[in-house]
Amino acid sequence: MKEFNGKILFLDRSDINTDEIIPAKYLTEATKAALKPYCLEDLILEGFDSKRDLAGKSVIVTRANFGCGSSREHAPWVLECNGFNLVIAENFARIFRQNMYNCGMIAAELPAEKIDEMFRLFAGTDAELVTDLEKKTFTVTGGGKTRTYDFTIGSFDLELVKAGGWVAYADKKY
């Protein structure tokens, strides 16, 4: 099972699409590892620099409809290559969300007001998040504050995370 803890990268925008996460011109790469330098290269977000802002971060917190657009699984792969196994958002595009769980990664949905609070309290601090998959909580610490957020994960999604993805799960079961 992957790690779901670490420092948070806050992306304060809705509808971040998979072309922004990994532009199509890189889809000709034959390996996942080759994608690494291009993560979030075309993201439109004021003040954001993909060459500078990803370093040392392992969790993304963002707004609504993250991962909309293309079906490219290169989007979760490029996040994984850069150490991100967990994205927290108000909601996700269906294909992106499924791709995350299919890779044994987590796309967790929290209500808009909880996301708002995370941005208000922790964006701009050196915030760190710890996931407890048993209790189903995220604990965020930063700027002298700590908050714990409950999240839900379906039993099927959790099995995919524990199995390390859909191929391993399906190969056993079907």
Partner: peptide, 18 residues
Amino acid sequence: AGVGTTDLEVGILKGVCA
């Protein structure tokens, strides 16, 4: 439905998708 590469891989191998 559009799917990612993992769903495609399982589709090719097992003929199913969730």
